[in-house]
Design a protein around this nucleic acid. Sequence first.
DNA 1: CACCCCCGCGCG
DNA 2: AAAGCGCGCGGGGGTG
Length: 572
Amino acid sequence: MHILITPDDDGGAHLSRLDDSGVAIGSPWKVSAEDLPQEVVSLEEEQPRWVWDTVHDFYPRLLAAGVRLARCHDISLIRTILRFSSLVQDPRYADMAARITGSADYPSADAGPVEQLQDSLFDAPRQARDHELTRQEFAAQLAAIAGSSSPVRLRLLVAAESAAGLVATEMQFLGVPWDQAAHRGLLEEVLGPEPPLGQRPRKMEALVAEMRELLRSPSLSPDSPQDLLRALHRNGIEVRTTRQWELQEFHHPVIAPLLEYKKLSRLYTANGWSWLDSWVRRGRFRSDYVVGGVVTGRWSSRGGGALQIPKSVRNAVRALPGYKLLVADASQVEPRILAAMSADQGMAAAARGQDLYAEIADAGFGGSRSSAKVALLGAMYGATTGESARLMPQLKKLYPAAIGLVEDAARRGERGESVSTWLGRTTPPPGAAWEAAQRTQTQEEQRRADSWARSRGRFTRNFIVQGTAAEWAECWLAGIRSRLHALGAAWPKALEGDTGAAGSSSWPVTGPAELVFFLHDEIMVHAPEGLIPDCVEAVESAARDAGRLLFGTAPVDFPLTVAVVDSYDQAK
DNA sequence: CACCCCCGCGCG
DNA sequence: AAAGCGCGCGGGGGTG
């Protein structure tokens, strides 16, 4: 059973029941903004799949009203996947998706078959038409999937991606528990007291004075790469850039304070007092998570640099009293994914244990784990120089199927072709740069075309691995979510309305064990101490399930590193 | 003034 | 110059 829900101008919604092909069962009905949460709760008892254009339309306010939903189909997220997927063979959905994403006046423009609805059924014809057009797109998505070369894979991807939309919204709603006082203490210790507006923190100012002295540049402005570069050159330090790793190569008294300054400056500008004031409220750091925000299918984030929380401030991420943070990290996901997708027997054998790199080192790199790791990362990223490139032939001899798979993906990219992940997410078309590269005349143009092709090859090479790893991670995440949801339902209602344990009276307790963070191959659950063993079991069984869902019986393990801690810095 | 690009660095 | 993949963000500096 599907229930389609679309927005109204007055904050209410239009709802309708749809069958398994997306065909309407009966007529849509209208629900006011006020009645919506209760209506949704009672419909949820039928265990429907909620169908909406985007999770943003309704889910945030449903969460605020204390409503959680089990499953959905997120038309916008699925549009992004299906419009390019090479598994979809009928071009009609891609055309529809192009119209929707490309023209601002859709859906009112291309009404077509629904014109007859105009005069009847509703007092608000335009919204009725929007509801019907949304239904039509949903039906078109189902048809595209059913007619694809692998409905099984696409259905899994659609379920995982839609569940990801729910998790992302829930994580944004909850926020990462953040101890503001601990963060301030840490800043004060490293940078000195919070400076007045327009001034540097004391410890940074002291380093600036020291550098000006050492470089005999009284007006040096270390925040300006140009200015800094000139000052370094005047003192015989012939760096080409002011990057850390390059500065490290030089021996000069100014290097140490300069590197220290850069470190402090980073903390101050990226996660200092103003960051705290902008992004942390009532003990929670909240950010927008953008599911499918990366071409490969990874998430991106908007606001506060949520996916770049530096190690140096992770001590401020703290469980509330009586709670713990469960931090689980999937080890070496990308090489394991490569082993499974390529069905490379040798690499799969190496991927059966806890440390894949060590196994590969023993198999062909004289036991050198670091060599094995550099070689494998180079193979997945497309290294062309240095140690990594030098080790490639040996790696290819050991694992011909695995290395063949990424090399084939690279060749396809170089030719301007597309590649796909295991579940069917496909690279977007190369676009104008590729067209231009086809019409080279001068040598310079040819050189740039070659450079573009190599770059595209590195992208497609990595895309299949990074993208499939993202699919595994979303399946893992969805599995954790549904297990925690079940745990929550079984948990005594004691926590309901109880804000004492949380210590922050204004925070709604919406469930006992919460997914609060996700970072590509790592998750964080915030849960009462007593529930932690169940959460660990949930996280581990979800990882096993994710491997089976994608790769069936393929003999590749996806082991986790699990830590139960009070603050994030204690993990790993 | 807004806008855009580059630089550098944080994360996986 | 470019440089092994994918991101977001803040600051500098130039442009209109």
